[in-house]
Nucleic acid binder design. Structure first.
Lengths: 228, 228
DNA sequence: TGCCCGCATTTTGTATACATTTCAGCGGCG
DNA sequence: CGCCGCTGAAATGTATACAAAATGCGGGCA
């Protein structure tokens, strides 16, 4: 079960690599993704590439037009806003459910991620920090115990990174106080509070995004130091 | 553009057929989906089948275990509850946004679906009625203008049908008064009201589900005559 | 008798080959 | 001069072939 599962499937590897390329911006929006080229570039056949592209399409990273190929999806400012709206709906639900169901071990896991994040902050390791952030939010969803929510949210994390990477080439420093507050709300089992903290967290992320893109200023929001 | 797009891809056809088989219950949860058999049964090669299975996996209808094949996903009572929680979060968001952005033509479209549903009701055509229901909710999402929300919600409709089909072999009669109320809220541009109507609608659907499965009764809910 | 190991079958994963379609370029025609 | 249709290349969609892994079964052994 340990070594056996380690045999990664090519489609997974291709999918992860393409997702990374898209998120990092190496594959710009609008870029045509020709199966032959990708297969040659990655040293595999077209089949795993096709399957990976389909997965990425279901996650919204690429758009597949029948018989015309795949292109990297465009992320308009409007779509970024769309993402924040959906995040607010789903993450607030996740926080509420997590607060309802969290036990001691779950809280411990959350706390350990915060500790790891603190160490990453001290070390100045921004990639590790981003990973911690993703892990924390995914953990909240896991704790919520809602499998369907997990199915929907899992691909969303990458999309969030993508939006921020596109709009903010240099990553902003991250405030983890909101995460701590969310942890406390979940640990305390206060559903209402957890939901409101999650909403505030996403709102802060949106404000940060808006400030970075300089499109609109958001009066009344003082949180501008998150990157998720 | 009309006839050209009509050239359906095999993977789409396979996907729709498999989805239909799963939702209708002809493929029971836990059934192993062997690629060869499906390909032979549908008269295609394994390739479109594989791609269709991946899509269905991302929609949560099947579960793919690496190197061990695909099986029809199990729907536990808990997962059905999960679905209702997610629906409440996403459909309330859709309703709120639709109320914010709806214009006269959008309202007209919604109204025409209600008219169609009324005709289907008179004709006793339950399949058409179910289609109207799906169309109505998808239309609300479209009107919301949130592309990402649309991406997430589109596959959810089938899942809703699946849950009800599994738990309630005979379809319950449908109350369209809630839809009318939602239409009025959206037409009036009242975001708060639209959101609360949507929440109530999903809550009613949940109550209906619980009553059909006979698991728990929900005091305080008088709506028990919807099937979505 | 019960357990473990090895082999054959089945099935998935990947690669390659072929068919069909789209698109760009270009020449002819009105 | 502009539009239409044709043709060739390129890319997708589909089918088939091969390799590797997992499952199930039977025999051997303690």
């Amino acid at each position: 079960m340990t070594i056996g599962t380690a045999h990664q499937l090519l489609r997974s590897l291709v999918c992860e690599e393409l997702r990374r390329l898209v998120i990092s911006g190496e594959l710009a929006p609008g870029t045509r993704l020709v199966e032959d080229r990708l297969a040659a570039r990655l040293g595999v056949s077209r089949n795993p590439v096709r399957e990976a592209l389909q997965t990425l399409a279901s996650e919204g990273f690429v758009e597949i037009l029948p018989r015309r190929g795949a292109v990297v999806a465009e992320i308009t400012a409007e779509q970024a806003e769309d993402l924040f709206d959906v995040r607010m709906a789903l993450e607030s639900l996740a926080a509420r459910l997590a607060a309802r169901r969290a036990d001691a071990t779950a809280v411990g896991r959350l706390r350990s991620v915060l500790v790891k994040a603190g160490q990453a902050t001290d070390a100045g390791d921004f990639d590790a920090l981003a990973a911690c952030n993703t892990e924390f939010h995914q953990l909240v969803v896991d704790i919520s115990g809602n499998d369907y929510l997990s199915l929907l949210v899992a691909p969303m994390a990458g999309r969030v990174q993508w939006v921020f990477r596109l709009s903010a080439p240099t990553r902003a420093p991250h405030s983890w106080t909101e995460h701590e507050e969310l942890l406390h709300a979940i640990a305390g089992g206060d559903e209402e509070y957890a939901e409101s903290v999650a909403r505030a967290h996403v709102a802060a992320a949106r404000a940060s995004y808006r400030q970075l893109t300089g499109e609109r200023s958001v009066p009344g929001s003082l949180h501008a130091d998150t990157d998720d």
